[in-house]
Design a protein around this nucleic acid. Structure first.
Lengths: 245, 245
DNA sequence: GAGTGGTCTAGACCACGCA
DNA sequence: GCGTGGTCTAGACCACTCT
């Protein structure tokens, strides 16, 4: 078992399963297996890595808990797919009051590449000369405009994304399948604001109505800040639903 | 190992660790050990329950993941305490924009017992004749009023709570230590509203300002809906921060 | 029946906290 | 030095899926 150095603050002791974990994460991040593809069996992987099945299991179980893998008894271990369904509901928290999840449909969008601005460089850890892709789009719920958002991503990570004919409703499955970027977490900050004239037009509500503004930074498997998204959402019959544990 | 019946939809097969898990949860819920108290060691518990140490470990680890227990290497396994710090930041999500957690201080409160109303009975699964305790309070952040909330709890679960001289800032540690009720999860729904005259007065902001309204139902270890709380929060320099995974 | 993940065991040794 | 949780192993058997 090769030693693996790290920059964390725990220099002294590094359990075996932690080292194996890092190896597997790196292999997944490098795209050794495609989304939906099966990994070798527990036993095989354990043999390859030179550890016991129990240790390998611990690794695969924790990766499953982080939703990077999926295990199905009797079938195998698979790279988790950000399917439409899953990608949509994992990070899209809007719902109808009382609980039923709201399903957004794609409406209008525009994409352009431009130089980065200071706040974006801070949010996404970019250098002065980095370029970004700016996506603005509106999404509907139940046929009515509901979400108006501005999405900023580093151009370097998504080459020529602006040349695509159209973007899917769930960007994160596109990030995964076309650019090899797995979104594993998102930090969101919510505040209440009054609808501006632009909001009013995009969301077909009265200017001055209260709206929810959601500021999100999405983080990849490699712990890189990959996307900054600001969503402005109608709050008349929609709520942001979250379960705290 | 005694068989334990359940009402879930998995009637056929019931792993050992699941049965042990349920036993330990019941014992914790019944207050067999006090908050902060140490449980017997893994080995001892395993012997008592008639299972291997590995199986016992699986049980204790999953209870730790659910924040019901805490394990400290070299010291032991303890009933998790809803200390001020922890209880505060586990469910109180308000922060300053950019990330730093905001610390609320208790300001004004009033408590009274009254008959339950229809919406409360729906939210908390109460019967027609059940009485509730209503707590209204205002909390400050950085010395300024920031949160104005209405809390409704079933009177039956919190006998004579209304006779206490004052309530702590973190109600959930009170629920745990004085009434044996562990809050383990909370469902929150957020929306944006305009400050009413009452909001304006309580929060010292202008009427018509946008505010965040947080509707929470807190759930106990026994999966009982224990508290319904509506918080109205200033949104001028505070945000609701959450990490989605 | 063969292959996979899921459970369970028994035992060894390591890291940590404390007296 | 002892007791605790944390890691690691080797092997058995069970439940599920597919052929």
């Amino acid at each position: 078992m090769g030693e693996i150095e790290s920059v964390t603050e725990t220099p002294g002791y590094r359990p075996l399963y932690r080292q194996v974990y890092d190896i597997v994460v790196r292999q997944v991040a490098e795209g050794k297996w495609r989304p939906g593809e099966a990994l070798p069996s527990e036993q095989t992987l354990a043999r390859e890595m030179g550890v016991s099945q129990g240790t390998m299991r611990k690794v695969l179980d924790s990766l499953t808990a982080e939703k990077l893998l999926e295990r199905r008894q009797g079938k195998g271990t698979f790279i988790a797919e950000n399917t439409q369904e899953r990608a949509l509901f994992r990070f899209f928290r809007m719902a109808h009051p009382g609980g039923q999840r709201a399903v957004p449909e794609r409406a209008r969008e525009s994409v352009r590449v431009r130089v980065s601005r200071a706040p974006e460089r801070v949010k996404l850890d970019l250098a002065r000369t980095d370029r970004v892709v700016e996506i603005t789009r509106t999404r509907c719920i139940d046929g009515r405009p509901a979400v108006h958002e501005l999405i900023v991503i580093p151009s370097a990570l998504f080459p020529e994304i602006e040349k695509r004919a159209s973007l899917p409703n769930t960007l994160y499955s596109l990030y995964q399948t076309e650019y090899g970027i797995n979104i594993t977490a998102a930090h969101e900050e919510l505040r209440a604001e009054l609808a501006t004239a632009a909001d009013a037009k995009a969301l077909q509500i009265a200017a001055g109505s209260p709206i929810l503004v959601i500021d999100r930074v999405a983080v990849s498997l490699r712990e890189q800040k990959v996307e900054w998204r600001t969503s402005r959402v109608r709050s008349d019959d929609l709520v942001y639903a979250v379960k705290l544990t």
